[in-house]
Simulated scan of single mutants.
Amino acid sequence: MKTILVVLDGLNFQVARDAMGYLHAECAQGNGQRYQITCELPSLSRPLYECILTGIRPVKSGIIHNGVSRLSTQQSIFHYAREGGLTTAAAAYHWVSELYNRTPFVPARDRHTADSDLPIQYGHFYSDDVYPDSHLFEDAESLRLNHQPDFLLIHPMNIDDTGHKHGFSSPQYRNRARMADGYLSQWMPEWLRQGYQVIVTADHGMNDDRSHGGTLPEETQVPLFVFGSAFSLREDAAPKQTELCGTVCQILGVQHDKPVCAPLLRSGELA
């Protein structure tokens, strides 16, 4: 099943619970379910991109801070999908390109990627944290329409950027989350109509020191929303961040060796 993974960088669970009206409306209609998960440590971006996409904790992957700039040594969703003959794409921050395609990131070469031999075959990558989320979702939809990827990663940065400027308790941070929810409301109904499985989550949260990296609940508690026929919608599924890679691979129908959150999936079909 074709799958879209949306990683809303820096989105705390409480803010997602309170601010994401469209996503909750879809859940209320029986189209999805919301869960709370605890991110791995340290609660930093690059280590958790790697965790989400490979299922490997930062202390094991070696991607333990944002300055570790090298290709991943792990198998990611992109690798498994390509080995299974599927098409991959990403509209994402340039660190994702550095982890799975090429490093260092060279904008003239890597910003717009179309290379069937790379793990991420088609990509629009940005390197400025203020790159508008509205543009990023448009980039993603362009990839979807032009390349029909089986797996598409969408990774906007404005929630995290606003949190670093104003803090967890600020109206600016909450309103930026509302804006992301609004962008999803523009694009997600069509994805669901076309049968995509959609996962919306975050790498980490944000604290009132305008940072993250530690163990505070506001830094580590993040949302996971799931939508589509692949999911059981059980309230007690209790997924882990390290299980997202394997669960996505299971939905895609490709071979993998990663842990799966079986209760998250519809019984008897995928798990």
Rank of each mutant, 00 (worst) to 15 (best):
I4R: 04
F13I: 01
V15W: 00
A16E: 11
R17H: 06
M20R: 00
G21Q: 14
L23A: 08
A28N: 13
A28Q: 14
A28M: 13
G30I: 07
Q33L: 01
I37G: 08
I37D: 06
T38I: 14
C39M: 09
E40I: 09
E40F: 08
C51M: 12
P58S: 06
V59R: 15
V59D: 15
S61I: 11
G67N: 08
V68C: 14
S76G: 01
I77M: 03
E83G: 06
G85N: 08
G85Y: 06
A92T: 03
W95N: 03
V96L: 13
E98P: 07
L99D: 00
Y100C: 02
R102L: 03
V106F: 14
R109D: 10
D110E: 09
D110V: 04
S116Y: 15
D117V: 09
P119N: 03
Q121Y: 01
Y122V: 01
Y126H: 14
D128H: 15
V130E: 13
Y131M: 05
P132E: 01
P132V: 02
L136Q: 14
E138N: 08
A140L: 02
A140T: 04
E141M: 09
H147P: 05
H147C: 04
P149W: 08
F151V: 05
F151M: 04
L152S: 07
I154Y: 00
H155W: 13
I159H: 02
D161P: 12
D161Q: 09
D161H: 13
T162M: 08
H166F: 15
G167Q: 05
F168L: 10
S170G: 07
Q172N: 11
R174K: 04
R174C: 11
N175F: 15
M179W: 07
M179H: 07
A180Q: 05
S185K: 12
Q186N: 10
M188F: 07
L192D: 01
L192A: 01
L192P: 00
L192E: 00
R193Q: 09
Q194C: 13
G195M: 00
Q197V: 02
V198C: 01
I199F: 06
H204W: 05
G205P: 03
M206V: 04
N207F: 13
R210M: 14
S211N: 12
H212D: 11
P217C: 06
E218R: 03
Q221H: 14
V226N: 13
V226P: 14
F227G: 02
G228L: 13
F231T: 04
S232F: 09
L233H: 05
A237V: 09
T242F: 06
L252R: 02
G253T: 00
V254H: 07
Q255E: 12
P259M: 02
V260M: 13
L264F: 07
L265M: 03
S267G: 08
A271W: 13
